[in-house]
Amino acid sequence: MAKPIGLNGLIISYLVLTVLFAVSYMEKLRIEKDIFVSYLRMSVQLFLAGFVLIYVFKIDNTIVNVIIFLFMILFASRIVVDRSGVKIKNATLFIFLSIFISSVVVLAVLIFGIVHLHKLNARYFIPLAGMVIGNSMNSTAIGIERFFSKIKDNRSKIEDLMGLGATEEEAVSFVKGEALKAALLPTFASASGMGVVFLPGMMTGQILSGVMPTQAVYYQIVIVIAIGATVCLSNYIMVKILSSRLKFCLTYSGI
């Protein structure tokens, strides 16, 4: 077991935050409020998660686990919509579906095929789902933003292709590719830095709680691949849905 940090440790840690406030103040960034809100939100959410997880692990009921899973995806989808500034109808639904389908597929392989659990054990399912959904959330936010900004920049090229007989989906296929690439690149970049540049969070956590580093490596590799697959699938599904409904996408981007 990891050595407990305790309240004192936590207070010292919060004092470290003054670095952020100091830089913001000195450089007149005026983001003190954002810093405060973000870290307050993080702390409240994590404490709540900690308390909830105690009960979730104790109950360990499949239906409860699935409800939490759906809630996590819904929350992630809302964040993607807010962060990317996308204003199309049903955006949350499309992103929800993209993350849901991809994470269900990947988590099924991960939990039943690799970890060999016989049911959705909360202790494994919730944290693994969290990592997969969280990464999908970050990448789909980039993907959807890029998709629409590229459509806006390439409006005449898209019209040119449609004027030559392309369907809506054919006309945006080059945009689709660029959005996908932009969404996937950070995931690959982070994968190639692991182990040398940094030790990923999950592996660090396992090592701190006493797991042999060699064993932690197994878990880490499996989760990194799972994240890569989910990120790729969720973005692929998302751009597929969006380009098959190009008409309102064009309307959205001001064409």
């Binding site: 390439n154 409006r155 005449s156 090229k157 040119d160 004027g163 030559l164 007989g165």
Partner: peptide, 13 residues
């Protein structure tokens, strides 16, 4: 889409 073709003014693909 199959039988009518348009050349746009600029910004060709």
């Amino acid at each position: 889409r199959g039988n009518c073709k348009l050349i746009v003014q600029s910004g060709y693909y």
